[in-house]
Structures are given as structure tokens and as C-alpha cells.
């Protein structure tokens, strides 16, 4: 690798990064979502898991997610330097070298997959390996810069954690695991497109073909409505399969209807008002996923421990 010899590096790079800089490469905020969804996937799966093994499995999934974050930053340092949102990441700001980032990502990926396999089973480990590969290679290297559907496909990587959690407990992938996958998979496009709508200029400057830049705002707004409606339907899926009951079904429906209503409201806005509504939708999308998964957990808990609903 020639990067270590590249010129324009500040003296801090030659000193190596601080520990906090390396931790930042693991995208701790994305990790929170990964840990949370994997945790829910694990707890709602039928059958139990030894709590120690469960804790280790979650840790492995989190570290695996962190590894893909590092690999993503290793590859994307050039475009991160062009967007205000990512300008201060460790590599573009000169705190960590690309070489170090690649090594960190590969090391953590290897250890997290191997440890998950030894602790639980190799289906879960294989899914984690596939997720890292999918995010780092298929999404980051291949699709992100070449298609406006990048988010749709990249969303699949973020949708795997609950499925990995499920597989860690059961050793299989059932319809319920696929539904959990579908919920996050369908949630990701409206979530990111809402962001892209009010950060449009940023993506344009970095040359990333996000939907609003390529297909226009109207097309993006339409797509958001479509995905949100599909998400609302998928969100009801766990009730249909009998995984959960009405304690989940009622809030899931209400959350989905509100999400769809906000998406439709965004569809009929323009200019500054459109950006404001896009921001509202973005914030709501985070709340949606969190409350939905908490409701899932609460319902399964009620059924399992109290036998109600």
C-alpha cells in the first residue's frame, strides 16, 4: 500500500491515531442500531440461549458491524472528504491512516465471525460474514457510486442483524426471521431518502448518485411513499405468522399509518417546506423502528412469561 507515503498528511498521522479515533472508525451510532435489532431478533426467536453465549453473540455482531464500518471508511475516504456530514471522520481529517483502518477492519471482521461461529453456530457466523462482505464490497465498492438504488441494496446489509440474532438462537432461518429482515430492509430507503432530500447538495458534491439528484425530488417522494406503505404492511407480518399478538399489532399499525401519512404529506411539499417535512420524516423513521422493535419484544415477553394475548 502506498498510502502511508502519500504527502499531504499532517504530523498527527505519523504519530498514529488516538484510541478514540480508532473507535470512531467502528461507527458507534450505527452499531447501536445493529446491537438493538440483533438483540430483539435473538430474544423473540423461539427457544432460549445461554445468557453468556447470547451476550458474546451480540458482541460479535456489534464488532462485525464495526468492522464493516471501518472497511467502508477505508474505501470511502475520498468522498467522505467532500461531504460536510462526513468531513470530520478519522481518515479525511488526517487522524488515522487508510492502511491502519483497513487492517483494523479486516482483523475485527475475522475475529468476530470466528468467535460467533465457535460460540453459537456457523449459520449465524456465515450470515455475519456475508453481511460484512455485502456492506463493504457489494454496497460500498460496487453499488453506492454506480446506482441511485444504492440505498435499497445497501439496506439489506443493515437488515441482517436481527436475522443473525435469530439464527444464533435457532440455528435456522424461518419466515419470521425473513419478516424481521424485510422490515428493516423496507425501512432503510425512506429513512435515507428523507436525509438525502434535505442534504441533497452534499451528495451531489461528492458525486454519489442518490435518488433525489438523479431521478429528482418528485420521484424520490413517490418512492418514499411506496416503501413506507410496503413497510407498514410488512410491519404487520409478525402478527400474521403468529409470532406476536395484538399488543404488538396495534402499535405497529398505528406507527405505520403515521409513517405513511408523513410520507404522503412530504409528497405534496416543495422547497423549504419539503426540506422541513423530510427532516421530520427522517426523525420519525428512527422513532418508528425503535418503538416497533420494543413492541415486538414486549409482546413476545407477555406471551412467553405471562401467557396473555
Amino acid at each position: 500500500m502506498a498510502y502511508a507515503d502519500d504527502t499531504n498528511q499532517t504530523s498527527s498521522v505519523h504519530m498514529g491515531g488516538r484510541v478514540e479515533d480508532y473507535l470512531e472508525l467502528l461507527k458507534p451510532r450505527v452499531m447501536q442500531l445493529v446491537v438493538f435489532t440483533a438483540f430483539v431478533g435473538m430474544l423473540v426467536a423461539p427457544g432460549g440461549i445461554n445468557p453468556v453465549i447470547g451476550f458474546i453473540a451480540i458482541l460479535c455482531i456489534a464488532i462485525g458491524g464495526g468492522a464493516s464500518g471501518a472497511l467502508n471508511m477505508w474505501y470511502e475516504a475520498d468522498i467522505d472528504a467532500k461531504m460536510s456530514r462526513t468531513l470530520n471522520r478519522p481518515i479525511p481529517s488526517g487522524r488515522v491512516t487508510r492502511e491502519d483502518t483497513l487492517l483494523l477492519g479486516l482483523t475485527l471482521a475475522g475475529f468476530s465471525v470466528a468467535t460467533l461461529g465457535l460460540a453459537t453456530n456457523w449459520l449465524a457466523a456465515g450470515l455475519l460474514a456475508f453481511t460484512i462482505f455485502f456492506y463493504a464490497v457489494v454496497y460500498t465498492m460496487w453499488l453506492k457510486r454506480s446506482t441511485p438504488q444504492n440505498i435499497v441494496i445497501g439496506g439489506a446489509a443493515g437488515a441482517f442483524p436481527p436475522m443473525i440474532g435469530w439464527a444464533a438462537v435457532t440455528g435456522t432461518i424461518s419466515l419470521d426471521a425473513v419478516i424481521l429482515f424485510m422490515i428493516i430492509f423496507l425501512w432503510t430507503p425512506p429513512h435515507f431518502w428523507a436525509l438525502a432530500l434535505y442534504k441533497k447538495g452534499d451528495y451531489e458534491a461528492a458525486g454519489i448518485p442518490m435518488l433525489p439528484n438523479v431521478a429528482g425530488e418528485r420521484a424520490t417522494q413517490n418512492q418514499i411513499v411506496i416503501y413506507t406503505v410496503l413497510l407498514t404492511i410488512a410491519g404487520f407480518g409478525p402478527v400474521l405468522t403468529g409470532l406476536v399478538g395484538w399488543f404488538y399489532g396495534v402499535p405497529a399499525t398505528a406507527l405505520g399509518v403515521v409513517f405513511s401519512a408523513l410520507a404522503i404529506r412530504l409528497r405534496f411539499a416543495e422547497g423549504v417546506e419539503m426540506k422541513r417535512r423530510a427532516r421530520v420524516l427522517f426523525t420519525y423513521s428512527l422513532l418508528y423502528l425503535f418503538v416497533l422493535f420494543v413492541a415486538l419484544l414486549a409482546d413476545v415477553g407477555l406471551i412467553r412469561w405471562f401467557g396473555v394475548f
Binding site: 498514529g16 491515531g17 488516538r18 453468556v52 458482541l59 465457535l118 460460540a119
Partner: peptide
């Protein structure tokens, strides 16, 4: 910085040892 990095790597290795011990048990 080097010292802090070394400490962090040391902690990570210790955690790894603890994890493998816990898995075994």
C-alpha cells in the same frame, strides 16, 4: 498515543481471552 494504543490492545486481548474462557465453560 502509542502507550494508550498498547493499553487498548492489551484490554482487547484480555477480553478475547475472557470470551473464549466463557464460551468454553
Amino acid at each position: 498515543r502509542r502507550r494508550n494504543r498498547s493499553i487498548a490492545i492489551g484490554i482487547a486481548l484480555a477480553v478475547l481471552v475472557a470470551i473464549f474462557y466463557a464460551i468454553t465453560i
